[in-house]
Design a protein around this nucleic acid. Sequence first.
RNA 1: GGAGGAGUGGCAGAGUGGUCGAAUGCGCCGGUCUUGAAAACCGGUGGGCCAGCAAUGGUCCCGUGAGUUCGAAUCUCACCUCCUCCGCCA
Length: 439
Amino acid sequence: MIDLKDLRENPDRYRHAAQLKRIDVDIDTLLELDAKRRALDSTRQQLTAEKNSIGKQIAQLAGRLKSASPTEKSAVQEEMKNLQSRPTELKAQEQTLDAQVAEIDPRLMEILLRCAQPADDDVPVGRDDSENVEIKKWGTVRQFDFSPKDHMTLGSELNLIDVDRGVKLAGSRSYFLIGDGALLHQAVLRLAQDMMMERGFIPMTVPVLVREPAMVGTGYFPLGREQSYVMSNEEPAKYLVGTAEVSLTAFHMDETLDGKTLPRKYVGMSPCFRREAGTYGKDTAGLYRIHQFDKVEQVIICKNDIKESKRWHEEILQNAEAILQKLDLPYRIVKVCTGDLGQGQVAKYDIETWMPSRKSYGETHSASRFYDFQARRLNLRYRDEEGKVRICHTLNNTVIASPRVLIPILELYQNANGSITIPTALRPYMGNREIIGNA
RNA sequence: GGAGGAGUGGCAGAGUGGUCGAAUGCGCCGGUCUUGAAAACCGGUGGGCCAGCAAUGGUCCCGUGAGUUCGAAUCUCACCUCCUCCGCCA
């Protein structure tokens, strides 16, 4: 959530932010509702103050009544009765005001939840992902001296992937991983988790079925609601997360952490569920765009300090690079432009890994920094050295997402005879074998 | 799923309609004492929102939301969470 006070003072900053992120949000109405809301609040407080003060007088009389002599008693009772009429009037006025507030509040909140966090100054301005800016390339793209197969061909010839039966059971964009396909998938995830643990991240198994506040708090709702699966026979409803980021970031929701314990570094492995609404006909072949996958995700919760946030952003980016380098997969890093940035993100790097069958780099990682956007929604705070309560900053990045990353692995590690060489880093997780398929 | 019980400040725990943001203890912070520490003693110690440069003032918060009442931590209803017992179960 954005800072409403800041919006009041710098409305143009937020108009501009929404425009750059191409989010349709009515700032003028928001300001108008906010002004009305505060005026009502102020009036209402005055009424309540008067009511409370009369209430206290009555209370004191009630106390005196207990020890009053019979002659005093009736006088005190009379006085109490006289005092009682005014609060009744005040209460009626309060109710009128409350009704108005009750009408305004949801409208105000609806708009507020749609407001875009302004992108950081170093973010390139652009319309969509075509205007993301490449900042780094790593590795050499393999040149084949034979005609390479795509991962689907390899997957079915070696009996690693079965999409047909996946679709039969679960509908479009579903799949089975079989035998070494399943093992390779798990090997990649384990490698990722182990590498993150070496880097001081605490491993977590997280809920993947969560309540609405976790989804709103992390910024996936309300704008991305149609992308999530909902369990509507639960009351209140539960939602399947699209990433462990939701659970890891919301882990400390409504808490005030001790500043000395920051940063918190968490790594979670979880299934991820995405409806992929509005993507019909896009990336239909193979394991690229699917409804369910597994991902190892890194999350950092740190102090409210822009410099620190930026530093951790570089670190989580490097963590992801480290695993791609260990797997020797060529990749590039792009700085995501304003139009391709999420509502709450102030900056984002995508890592794209070379995928021979796509003849291009395909997104495999996404490293985001939010400053206090998520933490404000989550009511996630900490106490600093001076004892002041402040809102945390949050960041996250993919460590590895599989099976998508199996696309470059299978395609780049294939041999002329149709077998796959297992990347060295994965062999310890695959019984130290070197080859999938006949050598 | 069935039957009971419970949710109060960092923690423990009192409070069953009024002067209660809430006793007391522990913890924490500051001080006195001490060569230093401990003990003892003294003082302090929540958050949100609004106004204000600030000091401060107002208001809201006793799981959450609604209600009764001049007045609710205390009474009523709904929901959430936890505990105990029974059933079922990876």
